[in-house]
Design a protein around this nucleic acid. Sequence first.
DNA 1: GCAATGCTTCATTCTTCGCCGAAACATCAG
DNA 2: CTGATGTTTCGGCGAAGAATGAAGCATTGC
Lengths: 249, 249
Amino acid sequence: MKNGPDIAALASLIGDPARANILAALMGGKALTAGECAAEAGISAPAASGHLAKLLGAGLLVVLVQGRHRYFNLAGPDVAEAVETLMGLAARVGLRRTRPGPREVAMRKARFCYDHLAGDAATALFARLVDRGMLVAQADGLGLSPSGRLRFLAEGIDIAALEARPRALCRACLDWSERRPHLAGSLGAAIARLAIERGWCRREAASRAVHFSPDGERALLALADSATDETRDPDRQGADRSNNPARRA
Amino acid sequence: MKNGPDIAALASLIGDPARANILAALMGGKALTAGECAAEAGISAPAASGHLAKLLGAGLLVVLVQGRHRYFNLAGPDVAEAVETLMGLAARVGLRRTRPGPREVAMRKARFCYDHLAGDAATALFARLVDRGMLVAQADGLGLSPSGRLRFLAEGIDIAALEARPRALCRACLDWSERRPHLAGSLGAAIARLAIERGWCRREAASRAVHFSPDGERALLALADSATDETRDPDRQGADRSNNPARRA
DNA sequence: GCAATGCTTCATTCTTCGCCGAAACATCAG
DNA sequence: CTGATGTTTCGGCGAAGAATGAAGCATTGC
């Protein structure tokens, strides 16, 4: 096997504990300065600087220079996806860093996966969107049906603008904690922004974890209610909690 | 970030060139002896033995002892998926092991991805299955529509038996060369077995690459033709052989 | 301008980890 | 039983690379 991409160089890059910690911290989707990365990884500033330079050189990170600060972020959704996949496999083969604590319980419920939502709430939304026929399979992956398009337009999301970007509109991202898909892609990112802007949830300080209010969670799931239902009868959101579409295969 | 799975230990395990080569070789889906792994990775037998022990201990590999031979294989589809994801990211950020040669061209056309087909031909089949409405989105990922179910039953694939297994029936696996999805899951594996058994393609000796005959490629894509079109063809004897539940080679 | 902050570069030390050869162990053929 | 083959264990060598501390560059605020 001397063909194919150099998986070893990539994995070796991620394989250093310090660099893995940095990547995990950046999975929250927020850009961090070099110093913050150092603190997050528990290493000195010079060490962090070296690691960041390597990750940057490999194209896994991008940097935004602002004055004397350098803000680092993941280079793109595909990097986040690879990290999330590795987390899923690591969890499955039983490689944990600590035993599951209260922090992890919150993360399983809802968290950021780079720029979109993951966890129990996000997989529930995905399931509902599919059940209502808003999310459908397409030749190149996943797509929005006309009704789904209408629904998100009604919510003020400019679908056409999202489609104009090179990034895919919808993608199924396998949740490492739930082992079911949640919605990624530019639409998934737009939904996450929506949830934050409307106060459905609040982010933990320096963590991927996200806390939804009961109303916020209902509002999130109500995104899967058809546009006509939504405008006609807003109270219907509460009743919908009963028919949970999550069915284990 | 002191929570979550230990991604560093996993990536560091994959990050060694020798181990990465072993994993890449096993992506062909065929079990290899320790000696074959050593040759594949270009290292001595003792070195390979050590690496295999580590991969085995981490749960990434399984071993089947037969006499004085020990046959190693990937532990499951999720390991293969993680490796494929890493390959995709490595290819995208420009980490290649060699410049694209003739061997790689063949691999882009069609290859094995653990136990199912990948490459240009497989992504084309996926797109057709979706276009014809046989493959649809489901709450837990991807599923077979009634028409799709009928179609593969007509081909002699025992869908009910596949669904009884813990493994998902259909999964979209992102192709690292095409950057479009191909069909994984137990159905994807069944289709790959079908293609081999009916002689639509032949495997290269010690490679993931697969060569389709022109007729074979047509036959593969014809899996996406509706069942009524297909049943006109009386030449259907080989169908029963595909019921073989034996999974390991 | 001066000091402080954020970050990087450099040179050094040190640990880690993979490789190899030799030998031991297990299995199969005769 | 004996020799041959496949595989693992052990000891020593060597190199890749990660952390450290000091120093150098930039930017910000007084």
